[in-house]
Design a binder for these strands. Structure first.
Length: 564
RNA sequence: GUCGCAGUGGCUCAGUUGGAUAGAGCAACGGUCUUCUAAACCGUAGGUCGUGAGUUCGAAUCUCACCUGCGACACCA
């Protein structure tokens, strides 16, 4: 049953011959509100050829249209509005959802193709900030969406585990730190040394020389330097993993920057072979002036490699290892030029697959309108935010549902869910100013609102005795109160496809809010558990809504508690 | 300065491919729990869609110019 096809065919019978099927299909739109109809055809384009006013045309055509298969077909102004047969449509949609359950909306666009996703990528020895949250949850959600579309996502945590900052850290640690202090609270204390280093280096530039020397030792394989580095890294990973497990995020690989240390010579060799490398101001670069871009710096004056060199190595490694169909990088939009350069250089190297690399950029989180800076110690610690959110959730539970079991688990799911959902709700390119009250809000367009809606739906199903559905059930619900909800259920697969096409978790988040809202309206206006012949169909709506809400939340990486 | 992104009610944002009176949520005000979880629902109020031109039967949406904000612009990542 394809209702759009039915409309196209119905229209073609009465439209002038010069209008093609493709044109009709393209012109059909969905009215803003259901009271105008379910589909509409605007007649403006016919005005010229028919020499008539559009609303007259609409009126004439409606007179000729065969309304078989529709509830009704009417004209409103210049539009021909189609009202679908609600009962039949509902029956079909509800059976689809109930039968496929959590597989509803699955698609095979990807055909199992590998999609490495570079995400999260925090820096060792620095705390995870709200900025890392963005990369982590956006990447995680995109991975789930890709999976649902039939791709094989490979989540890669490209840890910032190499570079001069470790020289600084070692200097700071040796000057002001101790083993006991670090073990007691690793990240905060390491951060303390790092911040202090930057403060003191302003007065004493010789500290920077010392830091560079220590990093050089790391690169040369110095035992003490590497021992400290490994230690910092282990401690950091332990803390990161604690946060990842709270967020429910798992990685397939933790191949950070240091992983590519031995893979960069090859890149430099290839660049040399292809005559792409030129010397400029003592550094080795790839000239990109033909693209109006500053050059790609491959090697510094001192011979050390740079960011893009490493990323070239990583890109090639990923192609060689995973033979990806596309390769995604969930990285802030301030690095968009870097990825533009990366793709161009790869292309110049002769790798056509550079077209399959996509920078999934996202906007900055600021405080007071300013960019956060770890160096200045002005960061919003993710863990504090999660903690505040969970505590607030706990408070709400004690007020609203004091007899709830598993209070702590639910508070965790709701608090963390609120933070994650808030981050995914808006288009990822939007930057926003951090505001704790807004992030941990539980009312209105929030994660907890969606969770709550699902919990209420599940509660009804429990009260109904967890009814089983089968293919013979007549689910021909034609209640106008449920109509928007049913249409939304039907659109879920196309919503997922769109979210995947533009790499936008917010599309799913917005959809889940819409579905929750429409279900809450239905819930408020209709008695679902009334003992009459429509009971089973109503319960089918409730069950379908809970299936789709849970799947939507799952795609966002947000938990769906059964009660709250 | 150059390039990129953005500008929609007091605040935060929706608005596939141009289409019917520009939609939500917060905040404000007023209603709704003897009935399925009131983290909900209903209503009231609030908008020159940054500004000015242009394209079009039709523009928040497309084009151009300008204004404002943010970001990036060679040895950090």
């Amino acid at each position: 049953m394809d209702s759009k096809k039915l409309i196209v065919n119905t229209l073609l019978k009465v439209l002038p011959d010069e209008i093609t099927e493709e044109q009709v299909e393209k012109l059909i739109e969905k009215p803003k509100t259901s009271d105008l109809g379910d589909y509409a055809f605007p007649t403006f384009i016919l005005a010229k050829s028919l020499h008539k006013a559009p609303n007259m045309i609409a009126e004439d055509l409606v007179g000729q249209i065969d309304p078989a298969g529709f509830e009704k077909v009417v004209n409103t102004g210049a539009y021909i509005n189609f009202f679908l047969d609600k009962g039949e449509f509902a029956n079909s949609v509800l059976h689809d959802v109930l039968k496929q359950n959590e597989d509803y909306g699955n698609q095979n666009e990807g055909n199992g193709g590998n999609v490495p996703i570079d995400m999260s990528s925090p820096n060792i020895a620095k705390p995870m900030s709200m900025g890392h949250l963005r990369s982590t949850v956006i990447g995680n959600s995109i991975a789930k969406i890709e999976k649902k579309l039939g791709y094989q996502p490979i989540k890669i945590n490209h840890l910032g585990d190499w570079g001069t900052q470790f020289g600084k850290l070692i200097v700071g640690y040796k000057m002001w730190g101790s083993e006991e202090e670090v073990e007691a609270d690793p990240i905060n204390n390491l951060l303390k040394y790092y911040v202090r280093f930057h403060k003191e280096a302003e007065e004493k530039p010789e500290l920077d020389d010392e830091a560079r020397a220590w990093f050089k030792k790391m690169e040369d394989g110095d035992e003490e330097a590497l021992k400290l580095w490994t230690w910092f890294k282990e401690l950091s990973l332990k803390e990161f993993n604690r946060i990842y497990s709270r967020l429910g995020v798992e990685f397939d690989h933790f191949t950070g920057e240091s992983f590519y240390n031995d893979k960069m010579d090859e890149i430099v060799d290839i660049l040399e072979q292809k005559n792409l490398l030129v010397e400029s101001r003592g550094a080795e670069i790839v000239d990109l002036s033909e693209y109006d871009l500053s050059p790609a710096l491959i090697k510094k004056t001192d011979g050390a490699t740079l960011y893009i060199t490493r990323d070239l190595a990583a890109a090639k490694y990923r192609k060689d290892t995973f033979d990806f169909v596309k390769s995604l990088y969930v990285v802030g939009s301030e690095q968009s030029e870097h990825f533009k350069k990366l793709k161009i250089v790869l292309k110049k190297m002769g790798y056509d697959w550079s077209d399959d690399i996509h920078h999934i950029e996202f906007g900055l989180i600021t405080t007071g309108g300013k960019k956060l800076s770890t160096r200045k110690g002005n960061v919003i610690l993710l863990e504090n935010v999660l903690q505040d959110a969970v505590e607030l959730a706990k408070k709400q539970i004690n007020e609203k549902n004091p007899n709830l079991k598993n209070k702590d688990d639910v508070a965790e799911a709701v608090g963390v869910g609120a933070v994650v959902f808030h981050d995914l709700k808006n288009e990822r390119r939007d930057s926003f100013d951090f505001n704790l009250e807004e992030v941990v809000r539980f009312e209105g367009e929030t994660g907890p609102y969606v969770q709550y809606t699902n919990a209420r739906a599940l509660s009804i199903l429990r009260k109904a005795g967890n009814i089983e559905f089968d293919a013979n059930d007549a689910l021909n619900l034609d209640d106008p109160e449920a109509w928007d909800t049913i249409k939304l259920l039907q659109s879920f697969p196309s919503v997922i496809a769109r979210a995947g096409r533009i790499y936008e978790p917010s599309v799913i988040a917005k959809y889940s809010l819409k579905l929750a809202k429409s279900f809450n309206q239905y819930y408020a206006h209709s008695k679902i558990l009334a003992e009459d012949e429509g009971l089973k169909a109503r319960l089918a709506v409730v069950k379908s809504v809970s299936i789709v809400l849970q799947e939507s939340l799952a795609l966002l990486g947000v938990k769906a508690p059964e009660e709250m």
